[in-house]
Design a protein around this nucleic acid. Structure first.
Length: 551
RNA sequence: UGCCUGAUGGUGUAACGGUAGCACAACUGUUUUUGGUGCAGUUUGUCUAGGUUCGAAUCCUGGUCAGGCAACCA
């Protein structure tokens, strides 16, 4: 018997609702506002909502919460759809709150007729003052006593465009003494003479979140409406609207949103980074956006795995970025094609190699026996990493140095005989001799070495550009840090370098995943072309040597 | 000094009155033609004070701490 994975608290509720017959099947929804690009926090919500439906045999709607025309754009709608699809999920219906504007308007009229909503002429400031404070009850005002007839006439006039923005609002008549601020006569509709990305200029009044979200859930017969913790105080109002309107009783459940170390999860701040050109775009590979992560080389599988591992609960959390990195490494290790790329090159001459050149073979993925091999040209002049040579090797240094031996990956064991420096004192050329009988795959030399280096043949190498990324911010808890979050931007979050690559990369497919041996996982950037290959580093390899060096 | 949430190793997350488990991180060892991978192992935890009980992370009471709650945003 394998142990079943325990249910999170929402799965617990659903399984009880199904068992008790409260619902025959479930319907969830993912309800983004199209005012920005989706980020990894949304991925958590997407995996939750679609995952719930998948697990319990239900379905999920994609619904755009587009009730604020001044912030929303079609560009965002398109990117959101692309991101959800890329993550591997399909919605049963594509919905828009704006599709319900007529229905929502009718609901408002219904409330007015029940004496539960009124038109208020107060200014925003007056309304704020009259609301009181969390510890002091609100007062309300004379507009609260308007007749049903007058309210209806006024609301119709609002819809007809007879008033300017801000001149009037529609409010629910609930309770100014409520300890829940959201129940102190919340706003239902406001006037905004703005162009909507879908309804154009058909409307000049738009419903507030609280008068759109729950009703949209209800109209679609959403059984379990899952949102984040900050909406807990809204639930009373959510339920109030549904009850007063007598419509399908959707229920809201709340879980803690995702926070991660060294990054931010606020759409507003993300937008700021884009607008102020701290990053290049929404899909800059340093961004925690789904599109940024895609461009950087993260796989949908690894993001889904991550969302599975972080779990769902109600307590605030901040997840180590290293968990995400673990997830992507774990997947990429299994699927990435191995290639050799040298970034900071130094010339290695094999003095006793007189064959000129030969073609060697190297496995594409040691994790995958079926992965096959590729041709790798070898010659007497190679590029190796400068960091792989030390004039005066320290203890535990397994690489090259005077009289030291290493294996060249998939080639031969070599021994360093001498080296030359330039005028500035930098090592310029390393001379070595090779052992012909140590050839990979048919090694009869009996030699054993601790280090294996990657290399490229100098005359066969092709130039590539590497974008190597570091964390976007220099502190763990960016949102919790004092002052402006932009003060913590890591100035070295992007390093672009020129490198030499083995020629196989030229013919590799555009969306292939690579591991550049001993360097990390890389993915071709959207700007990459055959003439100018550009790779983004998705994530480094674990580096035990770097840790050792710090000691 | 209102209301609402919440509190389990460094970080997450389980345990539904009965052995505090799992993952990541960290650290050992081992394997390895990637200082990668794999494998084996180690370290670290129930906010606090009482109470109920044979037995409490779990139930009760008080306290402490953290977060949220006021926008013509969602």
């Amino acid at each position: 018997m394998s142990e079943e994975k325990s249910l999170n608290f929402i799965e617990e509720i659903i399984s009880q609702d199904l068992a008790s017959g409260k619902h025959a099947s479930i319907l969830t929804r993912f309800p983004p506002e199209p005012n920005g690009y989706l980020h990894i926090g949304h991925a958590k919500s997407i995996c939750l909502n679609f995952g719930l439906a998948k697990r319990f045999g239900g379905a999920t709607n994609l619904r755009f919460d587009d009730t604020n025309p001044t912030k929303e754009e079609t560009e965002y709608v398109d990117s959101i759809k692309a991101d959800v699809k890329w993550l591997g999920f399909d919605w049963v219906k594509e919905c828009y709150a704006s599709d319900y504007f007529d229905q929502l308007y009718a609901f408002a009229i219904q409330l007015i007729e029940k004496g539960l909503a009124y038109v208020d002429d107060s200014t925003a400031e007056q309304i704020a003052i009259q609301k009181g404070t969390p510890t002091v009850p609100g007062t309300g005002n004379e507009f609260r006593n308007r007749s049903i007839k007058e309210n209806k006439t006024l609301f119709e006039a609002m819809k007809a465009g007879e008033f300017e923005d801000g001149a009037k609002v529609l409010r629910a008549k609930i309770d100014f003494a409520s300890p829940n601020m959201h129940m102190r006569d919340p706003l239902l509709y406001r006037i905004k003479k703005a162009h909507h990305h879908r309804t154009g200029d058909a409307w000049c009044i738009y419903p507030m979140y609280d008068f759109a979200h729950g009703q949209s859930d209800s109209i679609e017969h959403i059984t379990h409406s899952v949102c984040t913790l900050e909406f807990i105080p809204h639930r009373a109002l959510y339920d109030w609207c549904i009850e007063q309107l007598g419509i399908f009783p959707s229920h809201q459940y709340e879980f803690a949103r995702l926070n991660m170390t060294y990054t931010i999860m606020s759409k507003r701040k993300l937008l700021q980074l884009v607008q102020e050109e701290q990053v290049q775009s929404w899909d800059d590979p340093r961004m925690p956006t789904i599109s940024g992560m895609r461009r950087r080389g993260y796989t949908p599988e690894s993001i889904r795995d991550f969302c599975e591992r972080i779990g769902i609960a109600k307590r605030e959390n901040i997840i180590d970025f290293s968990l995400l990195e673990f997830c992507v490494r774990e997947h990429l290790n299994k699927i990435a094609q191995r290639r050799m790329v040298v970034t900071n090159p130094v010339k290695l001459v094999i003095t006793n190699y007189d064959k000129g050149e030969e073609v060697l073979h190297s496995e594409n993925n040691p994790e995958d026996p079926e992965g096959g091999v590729r041709d790798v040209p070898f010659s007497n002049e190679l590029w190796i990493e400068r960091a792989d040579f030390m004039e005066e090797p320290t203890k535990k240094y397994f690489r090259l140095g005077p009289d030291l031996m290493v294996r060249l990956k998939s080639a031969y064991i070599i021994k360093c005989d001498s080296f030359e420096k330039d005028a500035a004192g930098n090592v310029q050329t390393i001379h070595a001799s090779y052992f012909p009988e140590s050839k990979s795959g048919s090694d009869t030399s009996g030699l054993h070495v601790k280090g294996t280096l990657h290399w490229v043949s100098a005359k066969h190498a092709v130039p590539v550009i590497l974008n190597e990324y570091d964390r976007l911010f220099s502190v763990e808890d960016v949102a919790g840090a004092e002052g402006d979050f932009k003060d913590y931007i890591n100035p070295n979050s992007l390093t672009t370098t020129n490198a030499w690559a083995e020629p196989a990369l030229i013919n590799d497919s555009l969306d292939a995943r690579f591991q550049f041996i001993r360097k990390g996982y890389f993915y071709q950037d959207t700007s990459s072309t055959k003439d100018k290959l550009v790779f983004n580093r998705t994530v480094t390899l674990k580096d035990a040597w770097a840790k050792e060096q710090k000691k």
